[in-house]
Design a protein around this nucleic acid. Structure first.
Lengths: 146, 146
DNA sequence: CGGGGATACTTGCATAAACAAGCTTATGGG
DNA sequence: CCCATAAGCTTGTTTATGCAAGTATCCCCG
């Protein structure tokens, strides 16, 4: 009980949510300030497409840990921004295949530069072993709640 | 550069955002399943009011790290759910004072029970020292980006 | 080969955040 | 005493998530 309360007093949820929000906000701001018209969540989809173009929406959902409605609407937004195209599957009319546009391919480098820069900013003063431990805890939390 | 890439490869942002999302989702679900009609973000405002009733919206914003528009709309939702009341400040008509309703006072215990339970679920298998390190890293990230 | 269930996706509705812009009320300097 | 400015809050728009429900297509089993 004592130990329990000690854990609670540290307000894991608040500190976790705050750090996450700050990091995502900074990523979004750094993208924007460098004329990269994309959000972090869209960037996460781009990462998958740079690895393998022509995925279905369901595959993207599974790979990014998003649900299908989220992917559907993110893709709508990304099409508006001319990052990707949605093409019907040649054999299965239920399915769409998502492809990068030229612009979507071209911004990869610049996005990674900003991504790297922002992660470095965030991790100033954090040692490699502290980061390892932190990531391990985050993964445990995720696994416990999955 | 090598060290830098090592850090990046660990995708801090993804793991941070995922753990955060899972924890908040679980909190929201556990509240709901126990007939507590409140969200985690609203709960964070309640915590402040249990400590000190009759705060202004600006004070709540400052104390919870939210912006004023967010607080304004969260408070609208909380009034609909009969958790709090918004009363005009007796001397400054620009200002509102926010007070707990009876219901808002009464659910404090039950909310903390669920909050505690969920945090314990999340932290299964995490040692006290690992948690300390993780929280320290999260705070550093927040501070670096503030 | 036809119908029912599964699959892939979309839409609707609620919550919440970020940011800009608007409105009302206070207040201090001239 | 009045006006410009500041303070406190609200509204509008965009982005994203969660969950429920709807639509279209496919496919297998009897």
């Amino acid at each position: 009980m004592q130990d329990e309360n000690r854990l609670i007093a540290q307000s894991l949820s608040y500190r976790l949510a705050t750090a996450s929000r700050f990091l995502i906000n900074r990523l979004n701001r750094n993208f924007k300030e460098n004329d990269l018209s994309i959000t972090y969540e869209q960037f996460r989809i781009m990462i998958r497409l740079w690895k393998e173009d022509g995925l279905t929406q369901g595959q993207i959902a599974a790979l990014t840990g998003k649900d299908e409605p989220s992917v559907s609407r993110l893709i709508n937004n990304m099409i508006k921004r001319n990052l990707i195209k949605r093409l019907p599957h040649p054999e299965d009319r239920r399915t769409n295949l998502i492809f990068l546009t030229e612009e979507g391919k071209n911004i990869q480098h610049d996005l990674y530069v900003q991504y790297r820069k922002t992660t470095e900013e965030a991790l100033q003063g954090v040692s490699a072993s502290e980061l390892d431990t932190c990531l391990k805890v985050l993964d445990t939390v995720t696994k416990n709640l999955a």
